[in-house]
Amino acid sequence: MLLEVRNLEKRYPGFTLDRVSFSLESGYIMGFIGRNGAGKSTTMKSMLNLVHADGGEVVIDGLRFSEQERACKQKIGYVSGAFECYQKSQLRAIAEVTKQFYDEWDDAAYRRYLQLFSLDERKKVSELSAGMRVKFAIALALSHHAKLLILDEPTSGLDPVSRNELLDVFQSVIEDGACSIFYSTHIISDLEKCADFITYIRNGKILASTDLDTFRAGYLLVSGEPERLDAAKPYLIGCKRHAFGFTGLIHAADADQFADCKTAPADLESIMVYTEQEDAHEEAAC
């Protein structure tokens, strides 16, 4: 197992990361989804000791992070959105400093990514657009043969073409099976394209961590007429009313209860949207 997160805990006033556990094998992409404030960034930062966890354990490629932080970080490439450090420094200076720290820094790979992302090393960070800063952060993270890429919303701020390019890069990085990517995003369609596994966090708790197909197969979208709604409510995870009745999300195991309704496979975004409605649907949508 390349990444194992066991019972990771972090307590803030008003928010608790509650015994977060999941694992990821080599050669896969795992999407990390959840609403704003669900605990995605806190989980990632706690994994890297950027946030001081109150409990739990992270194991990277067989090494306990708490005991071998330096060795673990050699195996990790981390990107948290756009590169926002050293605004007045040239990219070249930052890269030259960064590469000194990595045993397996690959200058050729770095040059390749600079070219792919159209980054000019002579520019200062402050001269880059938000999207280009994201690309620079990704170029740095990809250039030292990291075994695990932890990417916190790496595609935010990127145009659709760049996002697509990046997804291709992700696929090529995991191709040889030696590297995995754990990444969070709100652009669910990106995950539909490239993720093998999904970990879904909600209010600091892991709701599911499984392969994408199994995750999707666990739910169904159901549409019914207005008069069917009351009987459907106990089974609905979330729903929306409309002029012709309602559309909602159910557990696939409850499909028998909806033989008289239209059902369809649920996509990732619908699962997330309806699940997040769960608490409020009685009063609001339904």
Binding site: L48, E69, R70, K73, E84, K88
Partner: peptide, 18 residues
């Protein structure tokens, strides 16, 4: 501090103590 140096450095393969 203005350059987010702490975060940059902590993300490098060094311990927080380093």
């Amino acid at each position: 501090q203005m350059n987010n140096d702490l975060t940059f450095t902590a993300m490098l393969p060094v311990s927080k103590a380093d």
